[in-house]
């Protein structure tokens, strides 16, 4: 069976689900962050696949903007994680439950 759009939908859905599972399973803030990057990349892959199928460059530009947003998010997010590590000496998200009390 030749590769068609369903294969790419399936692959990208699989990567996205793995990202969701990782974000729910792990307690390390950095790993959760990496899982979010994985989900963004799954979406990028699908956008490029449909750009190829419909012969339209717009989707590739959207991938470009998603990469911009991901880079911004990583810069600010890692700054926050480093700051949190300096305060509580851990990257465990279960420590950050002070709003609960």
């Amino acid at each position: 069976m030749p590769v068609n759009s369903t294969h790419y939908l399936f692959l990208s859905l699989l990567l996205f689900s793995i990202g969701i599972m990782g974000a729910l399973m792990r307690r390390n803030a950095i790993i959760i962050f990496m899982c979010i990057e994985l989900m963004l990349n799954a979406v990028n892959l699908l956008l490029v696949a449909f750009s190829k199928i419909y012969g339209d460059a717009d989707a590739q530009l959207f991938v470009f903007f998603i990469m911009v947003v991901a880079a911004v998010e990583v810069a600010v997010g890692l700054a926050i994680i480093v700051m949190m590590y300096r305060k509580v000496h851990s990257v465990d998200i279960n420590i950050l439950n002070r709003l609960k009390h």
Binding site: V3, N4, T6, L9, I20, L24, K52, I53
Partner: peptide, 22 residues
Amino acid sequence: AGGILFLVVLAAIKTTQPQAID
């Protein structure tokens, strides 16, 4: 939770018309 999301979206995309890749 992740597996259920996977199954739900899989059920949705299973009915799509496959587009051939040029």
